[in-house]
Design a protein around this nucleic acid. Structure first.
Lengths: 250, 250
DNA sequence: CGTTCACGATTAACACTGTTCACTGCGGTG
DNA sequence: CACCGCAGTGAACAGTGTTAATCGTGAACG
């Protein structure tokens, strides 16, 4: 299928990569508003129309950049996950939660180190950039899916190896139950609807904590949000642990 | 101090209001990118440079618009709060929580009905628009403060009238304790640091749930996020209620 | 009442933006 | 060698925020 890519294809791929790297650099330096085709081309010693040989529009370039950023984020999270698992136990934290905690901290660390990029991935959608596309072949959507899988595998694997308490199907309000049932059809492994609900709740809290910090929406209260994040993380972990082992200190 | 404003001042104020209203209309119709000075002026039968008689730059216009939007959001939340308080009891919800629940639902409803505006207030900060200003005289910051006070008063009043369980100061990790102590100095009424921590945690979850839904970041799992929001709201409420009355069903 | 002057508003212009079009070269292929 | 396709260019179009110079009118003051 994949024959040796012709020499032209290689230099083309290299140019595409250079465009995205340059765009990335300008994004962090100037912000999304300064991310103009002419600026990218200027920095590469080209002219703006030449970029249309590689991307049909600025929007598609941004989408490709977003896909790359998702992959980079996944890489950082996976590395943090494995490092945390290898580092060994933390006081008061069950060993099974270490990978998940590592991935969560990796998520926050990447977000803080790459605020502009985080805003592109998880901020308010910019009109004209993959709004309501819902194209499943959209590379950004695929990358986002890979990102979600990291957390999904961790929580799902956690539940399968040592179930944490989840509400029974009958205890979930019917409208939510229907939503969760619909979603759970996409799971690679069958999980109870309650597990999906707990996962979603945890993800909402994690997103809230990180997004608020990165976007500066916690500055009204905190100058350094890390202690609060750590507390949230522990509270989240307490929900993913068998009921008897919970230490109610938060 | 405030003498009868001269006739000129009145028509000027009216023009300022019309500019912001027009900007608002264009914002919802075209999105933040379509919010151009020329478009505003065109719709008002003027030319773009005339707007510089009223706002020193586009950024200042947007900031003024943001302040207005905060006030509108506060108005919607207050109305929802009072309506919920007057409507009477919900099954399984203590009456004291009704105003807070109403305000929270009002927050979500306004956010969903005004997605673009919500993105402006609570999304990723756009560079060039009040980034890192921290001018306390910034009208947008003042309006944001008024917004925060709505939730602050509700949770604070709730605690003062019927305390909910909060961690003791000694049980809060020292770094977080220092952050909360610093923040609590700005409180109009003294509250335990634990109450500040619970408030912050609740606000993070509420923000996370609403922001994810509005920004479309929950579509990977849910087509309608309302049932999940209602569940989060109940779980939040269970933290703001005396320990004995908690019904552990989530 | 007449003068003055600040303010509202306009047109023209500058430096940008995304995008399209017509046009050059050059590299790889037949 | 001839050819075709592709990378890249410059010009152009419509639009942007913003500034400068200018004009006219309404309000205030002597």
């Amino acid at each position: 299928m994949v024959a040796t890519p012709s020499r032209r294809d290689r230099v083309r791929a290299a140019t595409v990569a250079e465009i995205k790297d340059t765009a990335r650099r300008i994004l962090v330096a100037e912000g999304p508003d300064g991310l103009s085709l002419r600026a990218i081309a200027r920095e590469m010693g080209m002219t703006a129309p030449a970029l249309y040989r590689y991307f049909p529009s600025r929007e598609d370039l941004v989408i490709a950049l977003i896909a790359d950023l998702y992959d980079e984020l996944v890489e950082a999270m996976v590395a943090a996950r494995d490092a945390a698992a290898a580092a060994g136990s933390e006081p008061g934290v069950p060993d099974e939660l270490l990978p998940l905690g590592g991935a969560s901290r990796g998520f926050r660390r990447w977000a803080l180190a790459n605020r502009r990029e985080f805003g592109l991935l998880f901020g308010s959608p910019i009109p004209g950039v993959e709004i309501e596309k819902s194209d499943d072949d959209d590379p950004a959507h695929q990358a986002a899916h890979r990102f979600g899988q990291v957390f999904g595998e961790l929580v799902g694997g956690l539940y399968l190896s040592r179930p944490f308490p989840v509400p029974a199907d009958e205890d979930i309000p019917p409208p939510l139950r229907a939503e969760l049932a619909n979603w759970s059809q996409a799971f690679p492994v069958p999980l109870p609807l309650g597990a999906a609900q707990v996962f979603l709740s945890c993800w909402i809290r994690l997103y809230g904590a990180v997004a608020m910090e990165v976007f500066g929406h916690l500055r009204f209260a905190l100058t350094d949000a890390e202690p609060m994040f750590e507390l949230e993380l522990r509270d989240l972990g307490s929900k993913l642990v068998p009921a008897s082992t919970v230490s109610t200190s938060g």
